[in-house]
Computed example of a mutant assay.
Amino acid sequence: MAARRGHRPSQAPAGRPRFWGRHAVAAAFENPERVVRKIWATREASAALDIPADVPIVYAEVTDLARLVPGDAPHQGIVIEVDPLEDMWLADLLQQGQDDKRPLIVLDQVTDPHNVGAIMRSAAAFDVLGIVTPDRHAPPESGTIARAASGALEIVPWVRVVNLARALDEIAEAGFWRVGLTGEATQTLNQAMGTQRVALVLGAEGEGMRQNTASHCDELARLPISPKMESLNVSNAAAIALYAAASR
């Protein structure tokens, strides 16, 4: 079943993001909750995709498509304009996962859309219950996220919350053990997780987790990386943490 999650306006004028690249576009076509408004494509690219018959398509040259996307974005011959997905409430997400032990990802002001998209891709690979971010200080749905997520934007529930600390309290009430990742922690992630349902909390690029967020975690833990490297990119850290959670 397709996921529903929070949204905010993206780069298109009427709050409609533009997605590009065959994986992101094909996933949008397959999501029954995603409304596709316009399609621009080369004839070759359109022939390789199952394009909805009720959506208008404009055939264009590669150079024309390049003007519809940022910089040197690899559009692979197709660009679509879509409506953002509908909001999803945290309580609804937690209710969906009450009978399983799938982990939850919580991102504390991770603002780079490439990182958010990469984390979504890992979240889909490890069958995460969903991703929770603040309403502010988090990127909106965009072509950059969709491209980095390689289709996962359409299948991983994404919940935006006004108050992250309050959301972490709600997550705890739902039975999750909240583990915040920080390089300053004394114990490793494996030592901190235990066997219960886990919510993995990761901080922003550079600044790390805010103190108030850390205070709403049950445990703080670190990844056992070599002292030769100070830290990992947040998307790499998320992938490793999800593997650790899945390997328990």
Rank of each mutant, 00 (worst) to 15 (best):
M1E: 12
A2Q: 07
A3Y: 02
H7I: 05
Q11L: 09
R16T: 07
W20H: 01
R22S: 15
A24F: 01
F29E: 08
V35P: 15
V36T: 05
K38Y: 13
K38N: 14
T42R: 08
E44M: 10
A45R: 00
S46L: 13
D50P: 02
P52G: 00
A53I: 15
D54S: 10
Y59T: 12
A60C: 07
A60R: 09
R67E: 12
P70E: 06
G71Y: 02
P74A: 04
P84L: 05
E86Q: 14
E86T: 13
M88D: 13
W89S: 15
L94W: 02
Q95F: 12
D99V: 12
L104I: 11
L104Q: 05
Q109W: 11
Q109D: 13
V110E: 03
P113W: 06
A124E: 06
V128D: 08
V128C: 12
D135Y: 10
H137R: 12
A138H: 08
P139D: 05
P139H: 06
P139L: 09
P139F: 07
E141P: 11
A146Q: 04
S150P: 15
E154W: 02
I155R: 10
P157G: 01
W158D: 02
R160M: 04
A167E: 02
D169K: 11
E170I: 07
I171T: 04
F176P: 03
F176Q: 00
W177P: 05
W177D: 15
R178T: 12
T182D: 01
T182R: 05
Q191P: 05
L200N: 01
V201H: 08
E207K: 13
G208R: 00
Q211E: 14
N212D: 12
H216R: 14
L220K: 10
R222I: 01
P224A: 07
K228E: 13
S231E: 03
L232D: 05
S235R: 01
N236C: 09
A237G: 08
A237C: 05
A239H: 02
A241K: 01
Y243K: 11
A244R: 15
